[in-house]
Amino acid sequence: MRMANFRSSYGARRLALGVFLAVLLGFFLLPQQLQTLFQEIGGPIGWVLSWPIRLVSSVQGGVGDTWHRYVALQEVEDENRQLRKELELLQGQNSQLREAASATERLTALLEFKAQASPAMVAAQVIGRDTGNWYRTILLNKGSADGIQPDMGVVTSAGVVGRVVKTTMATAVVLLVSDPNNAIAGLIQRTRDEGIVEGTTPGLARLKYIPLLSNVRTGDRVVTSGLVGGFPRGLAIGTITTISKEEGALFQSAELRPEVDVNRVEEVLVIQSPYVPGEDGKSDGPLPKAKP
């Protein structure tokens, strides 16, 4: 058994109480100002604190690599066989898509569409996860010093990962698409119905506000609509698995399986600007709809 502390003097106790009350009062009276102040001071502090995180993350990455490359090889042969089959299938699909792409190119030129510029992106590595249990976030090794700002979209080649909610000089916190507090404007690719994609508590996502008359089906793909937020139009979000219509409700909603496995993502791209500035310096908007 351990003797409890008797070291703090009466003065220290009063000082502690005073500091605690001052902090509490400060957050009640000036919440926004104090948050901004601490966030500003936190920029360089975050840069300092990011070094031990990088160190532990690289050690952890090294151990994980060694494990996966040399120890956990039991299912590699089966996986190889499966991947070869998938590769053959994808090669077939690839040639079909090349045909479709060249046709689209010709038609686009015919309709005199404005060419969509590639969005400006910066690559970043995932070095950590949220420090608490309330949010699903990932931590990136790039921050405000690299031009990353809150509300920027984060993607991989497979699709949408989430959006940046907080930055320090050297790190950025990304709220994942599967977090219930996230909301991204989505579009059902087949029916062109728009809605809002938000995360669910089991770690999936759902599309809300689908019109009742929409003929949405399971298996339909949902992509970003590009209307609001830091994403250009057409990035994959997920595939619809179930549709729910409540009696008397004005809209229907659909459960999605996110395209990106957010628990395994290691490298991402942060979209700094969804649209490259036009000749007059203003941002180009999303692609205009085809005129009839």
Partner: peptide, 22 residues
């Protein structure tokens, strides 16, 4: 003691919030 507990708690809470959406 309470003073050191409070100060370390405040700084740790601040530091942890920098790397979280909390």
């Amino acid at each position: 003691g309470e003073f050191e507990g409070l100060i370390v708690g405040l700084i740790l809470g601040w530091g942890m919030s920098l790397f979280s959406a909390a």
